[in-house]
Design a binder for these strands. Structure first.
Lengths: 344, 344
DNA sequence: TGCCAAAATTAGATCGAAATAATAAACCTT
DNA sequence: AAGGTTTATTATTTCGATCTAATTTTGGCA
């Protein structure tokens, strides 16, 4: 179907060989004499031949295509995940279908179906909110490996590559406690995703380990973005026992809170501690630099891709899990290294 | 090749019809009786049939796949472009190969070749720096439409969808001049991309229209990121006739400069004017909110996709150009609306 | 030179869907 | 009921590469 119209048959005729020889030669079979192979490659080049993968994949069991389904590509966090996947896949000779579902389960289903029609060798998915637990059962039943990245759908049989959100959140709380904070809030995200559930669970773990009570009033649910982070600040500072520290659901919320604090005349890092989550590239560059829990989305993407590649080799691969570390990175916004290096 | 193994033949046997009928029925041909079609669709469903697009595209002239080649997907600006493309393509029934070239021309060439092998109907590309001017000639020669988005490769025959960078930069300078600035700097970017060339040209246009001299010392070349923006501040403030305003190559540079200014004890928007470019989502949320030139990457992506779709219908489509508006958005960082609304 | 084994090449069937040309069935009309 | 139209369905070829089994060529050796 490539418009060039040059096929192996044309090469064969031009080089005075048969289609079979050309095919074998081009895939580097040891059956063909080196001299013949050279001749084939040369004429292919000369004619402007383009390999037709659709034709090939009609006979081959599976195409060299992997689908990557992302809930929100405009979010750099997920974009990095996709890029990590893609890098590994590309160097393994695979090409990737990347699709953006815009957090829409219907679109996600459509996209997955289309990828299936294209005979993908596997699918990596950051599932949208509201994904049904059996959403990937078709795929899995047909032996197509599915890896959920970042987000876990409860009850799904697909493999999993996620960071240790729970431990990461707990370590952030532990750090804040060690700095003397006792009223620590959590803001951002809805209860719908596994990420939020895990991070809140870690937040509670951290409080418990420090012997601090869990106060539902200090947990703010809302969209995981800057605006919401800023909007929480008012409530944070209100009351007779106000919070003195905030763990954001992600860096966007945390950075938003920093902005909000300034508008209330409080300097983040000095008069109020803020910790983010994810360590997006912006976190290090903000003023004050954001203390945050790094989850290395690119690295997780690479893992996910490696897992897909391994499973694509098997027949009916068993589900696997990989839990990556979530590492607390201490910068300026929590007061631990307040302002040091700021004027450097 | 889908592992389900169910083909139209299976449906035909199950429903007591021929392969041809099934094929026609599934593509909704008017030749088939409604009752028969219903029966076919039902058995297809029951058997878990998956349409095999590789097989189909072997006969059809072109596949329903469009390639999107992005120099840096982790940059939200380009990610939004890709998302805009994808949305339009998806609703037109196309699926998109998105690939990240990581600003590497070799990888770009590989990716494009692979896409060609998959028989894409067209390619949208944000070319990497250092792309050869004949990089797309193969594609174009074969009648595959190519649209360059955001970045123009001089001498290329491919179509083009870009914002009016030159006019945008000029309007930013005009605005700064109207606020009384006479020493206006430009920072960020290298001379290698059309974007940089155009924005610098617009900057010079703006100066010229205001009757101000162009001072090469006020143009800082460097990586288009926050760090470089911050690093420029020292030089900006030095000398006996220091700059009082800065036009950043993009928002990252501008935001970096804001941070840098603070470290030097200067409040951006009050004591020094900063204008960015692109209007990434962060710009509006920063403190102070960044005055910037909006280029609407999603909208451009949509345009690019529409252009590809139109051209995919033609045989050897002629090259076209679309220049989108670049609109100055006045916020707080240039002093025009200093701090107003800041405490709201 | 003749014969056999090894090496190199090729014929031909195959993958799954599309589409054209051919056939069969249904429906009118007189 | 025969003949002429529509309307439905089907047989068959085709797309381009793969791969096995079959065939041809080559080289070695007596």
């Amino acid at each position: 179907m490539p418009r060039s119209g040059v096929t192996m048959l044309n090469i064969a005729q031009e080089a005075g060989l048969s289609r079979a020889t050309v095919s074998l030669a081009l895939q580097g079979s040891g059956l063909i004499r080196a001299e013949t192979r050279r001749r084939v490659v040369e004429t292919a080049q000369a004619l402007g031949y383009i390999y037709n993968r659709s034709a090939a994949s009609l006979r081959k069991a599976r195409a060299d295509v992997v689908g990557i389904v992302i809930n929100d590509l405009t979010n750099p966090f997920f974009a990095e995940l996709a890029v990590g996947c893609e890098r590994v896949l590309q160097s393994a000779g695979f090409i990737s279908f990347i699709a953006n579902t815009a957090e829409n389960p219907v679109r996600q289903a459509e996209v997955i179906r289309r990828m299936q029609e294209h005979g993908v060798a596997g699918i990596i998915v950051c599932a949208t909110r509201g994904t049904a637990e059996d959403a990937f059962d078709d795929l899995i039943g047909q032996g197509i490996p599915v890896v959920q990245a970042m987000r876990r759908i409860a009850g799904s049989r697909a493999s999993l590559v996620i960071p240790d959100n729970r431990a990461g959140a707990a370590s952030a709380v532990a750090h804040l406690v060690s700095l003397g904070h006792r009223r620590i809030a959590f803001a951002g995200g809805f209860g719908e995703t596994s990420v939020h559930l895990d991070r809140v669970a870690g937040y509670r773990d951290g409080l418990e380990q420090a012997g601090l009570p869990f106060d539902p009033e200090l947990v703010f649910r809302g969209p995981p973005n800057r605006d919401f982070g800023a909007a929480c600040v008012g409530s944070l500072l209100r009351g007779d026992d106000p919070a003195t520290a905030l763990l954001g659901f992600n860096d966007a919320v945390a950075l938003g809170a920093c902005n909000g604090l300034r508008r209330f005349g409080k300097e983040p890092g000095r008069e109020f501690a803020v910790v983010g989550f994810d360590d997006v590239s912006e976190a290090a560059q903000a003023v004050p630099a954001l203390t945050t829990v790094a989850v290395d989305p690119q690295g997780l993407g690479e893992r996910a891709a490696q897992l897909i590649l391994r499973q694509a080799g098997e027949d009916h691969p068993a589900s696997q899990e990989y839990i990556g570390v979530a590492r607390l990175i201490i910068r300026e916004s929590c007061g631990a290294r307040a302002w040091e290096g700021l004027l450097s």
